[in-house]
Amino acid sequence: MRERFALNWLRIPSGMRRALLLVLVGWGLLLISDRISEFRVYQGASVATYFVAIVSIVLLTGYSGQVSLGHGALLAIGGYSAALVMQNLHWPFWIAFFAAVFVAALVGALLGVAAARLSGPYLAGTTLAFAVGLPSLANQFSFLGGEQGLPFDIGVAPSRFGENFSPYKWLFWISALFALFAVWLAANLLRGRYGRIWRAVRSDETAAALSGVNVARSKVLAFTVSAGFAGLAGALLCATVSLVTPGGFPLSLSFAILTGAVIGGVRSLVGAVIGAFTLVILPMVADAIAQGASDAVSTNLPAVLTGVLLIATIVISPGGIAESLSHLGRKIALRRQKRI
């Protein structure tokens, strides 16, 4: 069926096709950002941020089969590195984003070396400990700004974008651009050699090793790449609030990211999009339910919903929404074939 799809896009090479598709999506997003309210634009930036974070889980858990309960800590490392680079070196913000990716990937590589030797529950517990403890470190080093944290301001749009180009729209454009870049990178990576290697290791370590795959190295690499994505997400997250604080990376953030990945489908980039939207919509749903209720209800309902959704997904459809949809699509296609 894919063969017939417009003569394979007029025979454009697949890598190029993906890039073209993303440019089109980006164009669409820019057009949309002009048509919707400021608040929705801001939420769009959140979706892009969560998306990058979830992609990092998809790479790690979905493809390499390793669990991390502590990705919030890697986001924190990304956020702090970006803020430090901006504050001390006064480089432009986009270099700060790459610094975030680099530092987080470096820490990820170190963690990955340990992680490659740990299995399931041990790795989960270690990463959980990492996430519980790391933010508190910020209080102990004065150059990290303590509880108040550090400012991280990506500024306003250059004047050539026009007078009424709002800061939110600027934030959204940047987040969307980085998110598209991230998905392009991830899609190429997963379709390529390393995606294959990761899948091989995930389904059977011994068989992969016998086929000449260096299992340990592939796991460390997966952790490193995943941490890089997490670092980028952390910098984006801090850009949305113009601030990096230890309180900005609670354990619930790590849980939320994992929930988004599981709900969407931990093995698919489409699932990551679904998951990112879910994470932004969930608090709105909670607000709607908790209307008129006390503060305690409205602040804690999202956590309850997150937990319940996470459990429900695992019990009802462990592959997440994306996999359920593709099952459904296959069923419909089969039925059609039968009719012909």
Binding site: T61, G65, V67, L69, G120, P121, A124, S252, F255, L258, T259, V262, V266, R267, D295, A296, V297, T299, N300, L301, P302, A303, V304, L305, T306, G307, V308, L309, L310, I311, I314, V315, P318, G319, E323
Partner: peptide, 28 residues
């Protein structure tokens, strides 16, 4: 499909749900 990590993720979901529930009833 994610048999190996499912139990861990479920206990985590339970942790989140309980902590949210406790905050909902008794405040933060």
């Amino acid at each position: 499909p994610i048999a190996a990590v499912a139990p861990v993720i479920v206990t985590l979901g339970l942790l989140s749900a309980i902590q949210g529930f406790v905050g909902l009833i008794w405040g933060g």
